[in-house]
Design a protein around this nucleic acid. Structure first.
Lengths: 343, 343
DNA sequence: CTGAAAGCGCTTACAG
DNA sequence: CTGAAAGCGCTTACAG
C-alpha cells in the first residue's frame, strides 16, 4: 500500500499535522524534525494523494478545454485546435494542472462538459473556437472563470485571446502591394467578426497605397477548398481580374490556386496569392504557398496564463489580447520572381 | 454555496447515508423516501462532489495519455496523435473519464507524467507512439494498467493496438500489381519493427504475383519529405527504375513524387506512387495521392476500450490488436488512366 | 429500509 | 515549534 502522512507520523512518533507541514515546507517546523520527516518520507516513497488535497482545497486542478464537437478529423480546424492544445498543455503542465476536454454542439454536449458545469470539475475553462453563448452563460452563473480563444465574439466583456486578424490581412495585402501589384483582390469568409477584421486590414493596406478598392475584387467562401475555388472563378470572370489576391485562409488559398491553373493561368506569374493560417504541407504545394502564419500555440499559452491569473484572482491585464501573426514568404506571391526589384 | 448530501439530509430529517444511497439508486431505499430525496436534490441543484467520491473510491477517473515530447507542431506525427486522441476522447467521455496528458523524452518528462507515476494520478495509461521502455517499467511496478498505441515494440507481453502495417503494405503493393505494373519498388523507414512489417506485406504481394524481388528496388528514408526525395532519387538512378513504388508514409510519398518530377518524369505516367497514412490535404496535391489510410481514431478507441477492461479487471481479449487500414484510390497510382483495363 | 459511526488522506484554525 | 480536533463531502460496513 501507498504510504500516507499517518504512516510517517507513526514511525517518527509525531503528529500528522507536523508531518503535513514539513512536507509542504511550512516555516513553522524545526529544521531537525523537518529533515527527519523528509528523510523518512523519501525512504517510504511517500507521495501526497492529490485527491485528498483537492477535497480540502476545493480545487480540482483541472482546466476545462471546450471544443466544437463538429470538427472533422484531418480538417484545418482539427489541426488548428490540436496546436492550440499543445500551447495550453505547456502552461498547464508547468502549473500542475490537468486538462479536461469537453465538446459541444447545438444538439449535443459531452459528459465532460456536464461534469464541468454541474460538478465544477474544472477550476477554469478555455473555450476554443465558436461555442454557444449558452455555455458561456452557464459557466458565468456558476462563477467559473472563462477565457475565449479564437472566438470572434463581439462581446467586449469576455476575456479573450485572438489572432490579430486585421494585422494579418494588412500584412498579406501590404506584401502584395510591395511587390508592385496594383490591383489586389480579397477572398473572405462568411463569418462576421472575423471577416470584418480581415477586410479592415485589407482596406487599410490599400488606403496607405492610395489604391481605390474595387467592390468586384471582393469574394467570399465558407472556408473550405471548394469554396475558395469558386470564389476565385468569380474573380477570374471579371473583365480585368486582380493581379494579386489575399485569401483569409490557406485551404481556400489552395482552392483558388487550383482555379487559376484550371483557367489556364499560372501562379504567381499571372495572379499572385497570399493565404493566412500556416497549415502543414503548404510549403510542398506547387507553388509553395506564401501565407500569414498564425501563432496558434501562443494563443493557447497566453489564454491559459490569463485564465490562471483569473483563477488566482490576481489578473489585471487586458480583457482581450490579440496575438500578432507573421508573414512567411514562399513562392505563390511572386517574391522570388520580383526579387530583383525588392531585394 | 453548493448543496451537499448533508444539506439534503437536514431538510428531510434523514441521515446522510440514506441520501447517499438514494442518489446512487441503491435498491435498499424505499420508493417513497427515494422520491422525496430526488425531488429535493433537484430543487437544491445538488450535484455530487467528484473529488470526495474519488477519495473514497480510490479512483481518479483520469486516463493518462503519454505522448512524445519531441513531436513538432504541424508535423505528421502531431496530426496523427491528435486524431488518436479524438478516438480516445470519444470512449473516455462515454465512460466518464477525463484525459490527462503527459509528455516524455529521454531527457525530460512533464509534471503530468510524474504525477501519474508518483501520485497515481490516473487509473490507467495509454502510451502513444514510441515512448521509453523505462516509463513502461515504472508503470508496471506501480501496477497501473497500460495499453500501447502505435508502438512497434517487439514485446508480446504488453497490451497493444497497432495499425496492421503488414496488411497496409500488402494492399498498396497489390494495388500497383493489379494495375499491371510488373516492377515495384519500396521506400521504407529506418524503424525496425514497423519497417519489417511493411516489408513483409510488400514481399507477400510480390510473391503472390510470382515476381522476384530486386534488392535494388528497396530504399529507405527517415520519414520526412526530404528523405523520401532522396530515396526516390536513388531508385531513379538504377538502370531500369521500378514502374511503381509503395512508400510507407505519405510525407515521403510526396517527397518522392517531387523527385520524379524534378527528374523530368511524371506521376503516374512514368512511375506510379502509393503512400500510407491518410494525412490531410494529400488529395489536393498534383497528382492527388493514392494512399493506404490508417484508421487512426479507431486505434485510440480500441485501445481505450481495452484499457477500461483492464482497469475493471474484466478484459479477456487478445493482448495485441491490429486494425486494418484501407486503400484510398486517387490519381498518383494511375488507376484512372488504366481504368479501361481494370474497371 | 434507515441510521450512527468510522473512514478515505489530507489541511488548518486553535491551543499550548 | 508541535499536537489534538474538526472538517472537506462522500461511502460503507455494521446494527437494528
Amino acid at each position: 500500500m501507498r504510504a500516507t502522512i499517518k504512516d510517517i507520523a507513526k514511525v517518527l512518533n509525531l503528529s500528522p499535522s507536523t508531518v503535513s507541514r514539513a512536507l509542504r515546507d511550512c516555516s513553522s517546523v524545526s529544521k531537525k524534525t523537518r529533515e527527519k520527516i523528509l528523510h523518512i518520507a523519501q525512504s517510504m516513497d511517500y507521495q501526497p494523494n492529490l485527491t485528498a488535497r483537492g477535497l480540502v482545497s476545493g480545487r480540482t486542478q483541472n482546466i476545462g478545454v471546450i471544443l466544437s464537437i463538429e470538427t472533422r478529423d484531418y480538417s484545418s480546424l482539427q489541426i488548428f485546435n490540436s496546436i492550440v492544445v499543445n500551447g495550453i498543455f505547456e502552461v498547464a503542465d508547468a502549473a500542475n494542472y490537468n486538462l479536461t476536454f469537453a465538446k459541444e454542439s447545438k444538439k449535443h454536449q459531452t459528459g465532460a462538459l456536464q461534469r464541468i458545469i454541474d460538478n465544477r470539475d474544472a477550476d477554469g475553462v478555455l473555450i476554443v473556437n465558436v461555442v454557444s453563448e449558452d455555455i458561456l452563460a452557464k459557466l458565468t452563473i456558476k462563477n467559473i472563470p472563462v477565457v475565449l480563444i479564437d472566438n470572434h465574439f463581439d462581446n467586449l466583456q469576455s476575456y479573450a485571446v485572438n489572432n490579430n486578424d486585421r494585422l494579418g490581412a494588412y500584412l498579406g495585402t501590404k506584401h502584395l502591394l510591395s511587390l508592385g501589384y496594383e490591383s489586389i483582390g480579397f477572398i473572405g469568409i462568411s463569418e462576421h467578426a472575423f471577416n470584418r477584421e480581415c477586410e479592415m486590414g485589407y482596406f487599410q493596406a490599400l488606403l496607405e497605397s492610395e489604391i481605390r478598392t474595387d467592390p468586384n475584387f471582393l469574394a467570399k467562401g465558407n472556408g473550405d477548398l471548394g469554396s475558395g475555388y469558386d470564389a476565385m472563378i468569380k474573380l477570374l470572370k471579371i473583365n480585368r481580374p486582380p493581379r494579386g489576391v489575399f485569401v483569409v485562409n490557406d485551404e481556400m488559398a489552395i482552392g483558388s490556386i487550383k482555379a487559376i491553373k484550371d483557367y489556364g493561368l499560372s501562379v504567381p506569374e499571372d495572379i499572385a496569392i497570399v493565404g493566412m493560417d500556416g497549415m502543414p504541407f503548404m510549403e510542398y504545394f506547387d507553388p509553395p504557398l506564401t501565407t500569414v502564419k498564425i501563432e496558434v500555440a501562443e494563443l493557447g499559452r497566453t489564454a491559459l496564463q490569463m485564465l490562471l491569473g483569473l483563477i488566482e484572482d490576481n489578473y489585471s491585464g487586458n480583457h482581450q489580447i490579440a496575438i500578432s501573426p507573421r508573414l512567411i514568404i514562399r513562392k505563390s506571391c511572386g517574391y522570388y520572381i520580383n526579387s530583383t526589384l525588392t531585394k
